[in-house]
Design a protein around this nucleic acid. Structure first.
Lengths: 332, 332
DNA sequence: TTGAAAGCGCTAACAA
DNA sequence: TTGTTAGCGCTTTCAA
């Protein structure tokens, strides 16, 4: 491996000067710089970031934890962050936490021991306490899709209760009164909050929430199917269903059709998240928009500010969801 | 920051012993190990991977380049690789090359200067020569979704000509003779090969390929829509259309419906890739399966073998696509 | 504008 | 089984 030392000898300068050329620090005389650049090219020098990081105590790398590396939701978020960080010449280390406490901790540890300059965390299993403690240490960090009172300044999340409310409110506005709900995983905050919003909307409309009309899934498409099957098997009557997310809505639509019901003629369906393919479905899916990509971008910008002192950039701590009316809902 | 030295002093041993405990190398007396572990816990020691990497010249990290961090296709691949590497206690550094020559090179450089032990490359713009040269250097690397004669042993790809052939063959088998084609980006090998297969199938069936029935898109959904619009605006007659990938097929279906044509009653549509949501569409999309996740896993296993000498693991160099018949195609 | 030299925190011979 | 010690390749004072 070619080292700075070899380059310096070839160029007839000190290794400190070579380092200066590489990092563009201090002023190096144009002539010396040329000399060094030539030597580097001739020798095929490649900078050793590991050694540089050790010496400078900076890695120029941001760690990102997401639940999974696949899926429209996380894809959009990663992509948003990556774009912002790349422009700032920072690198990103993406790992998957798999919504498991031990795994999430382990991945955060790995990121920290790799001395990431900052962390963007989309974790679901780790406790608030752990995150609060982590935040009190020296690593800048932002928590995405989660609101923690004690470190609210470093959190950014969507008002899911409100989103859940809006979804059901939309169905109510269309005249539906028998509204089923296919909840996301209820051990996740998102699932709980969205359902909570649903119930609130019903309540405000003077309708009593009927537990028989609520089924729990796990945010995956097939669980949406299963929810419909269970509801229908129980002969529940409903003209509309709100779902924990778009995937579940997709599954629900398929199950409804399989069982001979038309969407939206017989049953209106509303999703949540507005993932990429929501508008590819037929009819296009009515849903609640979750600006994931923007959140990914925002988190990255904020991190840039905190870790590297870039131009001020604020974090919108609680974003407001938006209703996107398309083709899967209609007036009764 | 707590260092090995501080831990060693606290435990009353040498730093070498602490290192041994951390890395589980050599045998350390159980009692000393306990002593060290306690000291580490008390001091809140966190291993510095950067320093370890510099000293050992290994990072236990694999670099992965994909065109984009979002999208079902890359998501599945990343996820497949991640799963395999995590089990082997290796880490993954994912970066996006954005199908741009300069960016791809730059990202590979970044990965190399971070001293990744190995690379998995899904690059689209970089030249074969560059990859061949890279492969001749000391970093183990596997090229995904691309076949390069000179380094075929390190490549894994799908036979896209064959897949394109199969798709159109399927339509022909159903009795279609007026078959349109919505090609993917033709500056990408995948786009060209799939189209080539299509033409071959027509030729073998004694049908002359009509350039008027071929439109080029860019693998995105909206380009599928545009292709249909252009074909229909030109009053082209066709009862079936094969598409460059599933996204384009999705767009095509939407455009056909918008213009009053039913799928598959009036026009049969076949996609390519079999991405996640292909089976969520209505009707479910007939397509060609591209086992992306498996490819991601396989690449990771092979890398594990090459870079760390894990149990032998071979790479399937050219995979065979598979036809998945669902609801968007029917006999004429 | 440049050079000398002391680390950064860890690993890995080699010795004991 | 454990300790000593010489680096790994780079950055960064401090001095010139």
């Amino acid at each position: 491996m070619v080292t700075i030392k070899q380059v310096s000898e070839r160029a007839g300068v000190s290794s400190a000067t070579v380092s200066r050329v590489i990092n563009n620090t201090d002023t190096v005389k144009e002539k010396t710089r040329k000399l060094v650049l030539n030597a580097m090219a001739e020798l095929g020098y490649r900078h050793n970031t590991i050694a540089a990081s050790l010496a400078s105590n900076k890695t120029n790398t941001i760690g990102l934890v997401v639940p999974e590396l696949h899926g429209s939701f996380f894809g959009a978020m990663m992509s948003g962050s990556e774009q912002v960080l790349r422009k700032a010449n920072k690198h990103m280390f993406v790992v998957a936490g798999h919504s498991d406490d031990a795994m999430e901790r382990q991945e955060i540890d790995a990121l920290l021991s790799r001395r990431c300059d900052a962390l963007i965390l989309h974790v679901e299993a780790i406790s608030n306490e752990y995150l609060i403690k982590l935040a009190s240490q020296n690593v800048p960090l932002v928590v995405v899709n989660r609101y923690i009172e004690e470190i609210s300044e470093q959190c950014t999340s969507l008002d899911n209760v409100r989103g859940g409310y809006m979804a059901t409110r939309h169905l109510l506005d269309l005249g539906h009164t028998h509204i089923a709900y296919a909840a996301g995983a209820l051990f996740k905050a998102d699932g709980v909050h969205r359902l909570q919003g649903h119930k609130q909307a019903l309540h405000d409309a003077g309708i009593e929430a009927d537990d028989q009309l609520i089924e729990e899934g796990d945010f995956q498409a097939h669980s949406g199917e299963a929810c419909i099957d269970r509801l229908l098997d129980r002969q529940q009557q409903f003209t509309a269903i709100a779902c924990g997310n778009d995937e579940m809505a997709t599954g629900a639509i398929n199950a409804l059709r399989r069982r001979g019901l038309r969407v939206p003629e017989d049953v209106s369906v509303i999703g949540y998240d507005n993932i990429d393919y929501a508008s590819y479905l037929t009819p296009k899916l009515t849903t609640i928009d979750y600006p994931v990509r923007e959140i990914g971008e925002m988190a990255a910008r904020w991190i840039l500010n905190q870790a590297y002192g870039d131009a001020r950039q604020s974090l919108t701590h609680i974003l407001t969801p938006e209703l996107i009316v398309r083709g899967t809902t209609r007036a009764i």
